[in-house]
């Protein structure tokens, strides 16, 4: 990490793809508007000029065929990266993801592999309304055979994507729409971020806060305010949702005995429930208080920005959750 520079999350994504494509001729990118246009969020900007239309393929709007073609190419010696522009559009590709990509290896008795990376963008807070804002990660963690990662920093966006491309399983990389313009330090030199390892973003002794993607950044600023009030919060970014790094989470809870989980998915059936339930399984006797969850309300994401802000987790919700868990 000697030489680093500040780059954006979207530049980090594009760098990861470019490096992996340069390293391995089997790697290619395909999706809607990823080529000439450089991606709906400019996360593949410059790749088309660098690698050409054969390896940076603009596709028709056919999500199921795009992912299914990724499965077919992965089964026969390629290492595709496919993009689903908005996570909401994954609904159109669910058969290819759930019934094909995830299950081929197992159904075929292990005699096949699907080294497929599926990138997608999620998240509310931008006025995109109900069909372009969802956090559907809990749909995916349900499915054995899938790996699911969710980077919150440019460093992780690059390092996790590189690991995903090198992994011999289907890996879903869930990027955050609101984070593409955020910047952070990224090494000049080659590196990867291992799949399955959480990051402790801040050490603290009073509460363990587990927060995913943009919620982790929101949590970080809330935690600074709490620090001024004398509440010392440890912040964990799981980075990989499946398989979840319970070891890092359990170590922290053994120290703090209190937990707040912040995730943008809905209150019912969202990823916060999965973390909470795993904590019950692994850490029950370390807890001094129930796990407090901060999640989106159980309503579709509304368009109006005031209404939208009310539905998704905000700083005030995080502060209130910490006060609540500290009251026990």
């Amino acid at each position: 990490m000697n030489n680093t520079r500040m780059i954006s999350y979207r530049e980090a994504v594009a760098e990861a793809i470019a490096e992996e494509m340069a390293r391995d001729p089997r790697v290619f990118l395909m999706g809607e508007d990823v080529g000439v246009h450089g991606g709906a969020f400019a996360a593949s900007k410059g790749l088309y000029d660098k690698f050409g239309p054969e390896r940076v393929r603009d596709t028709p709007i056919s999500e199921s065929a795009i992912v299914g073609a990724g499965v077919g190419a992965a089964l026969t010696g390629m290492r595709p990266i496919v993009e689903i522009m908005y996570m909401d559009f994954m609904a159109m590709a669910m058969d290819s993801i759930v019934n094909q990509a995830a299950k081929v290896k197992y159904m075929f008795g292990g005699r096949a592999q699907v080294p497929l990376t599926i990138r997608t963008a999620f998240g509310a807070g931008r006025g995109n309304a109900a069909q372009h804002s969802q956090s559907l990660e809990s749909w995916l963690i349900l499915i054995p055979g899938l790996i699911v990662v969710m980077p919150s920093t440019p460093y992780d966006a690059k390092g996790l994507l590189k690991s995903a491309v090198r992994n011999n399983n289907p890996v879903i990389v869930i990027e955050n729409k609101s984070l593409y313009g955020s910047t952070g330090e990224v090494p000049e030199d080659e590196y990867v971020v291992p799949i399955g390892k959480a990051a402790v973003r801040r050490e603290g002794r009073d509460v363990t806060m587990i927060a995913t993607s943009r919620m982790c950044n929101l949590a970080a600023s809330a935690i600074e305010k709490l620090s001024a009030e004398g509440i010392d919060v440890e912040l964990i970014d799981p980075r990989t949702l499946k398989p979840l790094d319970m070891e890092t989470i359990a170590q922290s809870i053994a120290k703090t005995h209190r937990v707040v989980v912040v995730n943008e998915g809905h209150n019912t059936g969202g990823f916060s429930n999965e973390i909470s339930s795993k904590i019950m399984d692994h850490c029950f006797f370390d807890l001094d208080a129930p796990v407090i969850r901060v999640a989106s309300e159980d309503v579709p994401i509304p368009y109006n920005s005031v209404l939208e802000a009310e539905v998704i987790p905000a700083e005030k919700d995080i502060l209130a959750a910490v006060k609540k868990v500290m009251a026990f």
Binding site: F28, R55, V67, G68, V71, G72, A74, L75, M78, Q100
Partner: peptide
């Protein structure tokens, strides 16, 4: 087991053959 599930896979294996 999914009716039509294989058609996109065939597009992918054909694309792969051409790229290779």
């Amino acid at each position: 087991g999914i009716v039509s599930g294989g058609l996109p896979i065939a597009v992918g294996s054909a694309l792969s053959a051409r790229m290779r």
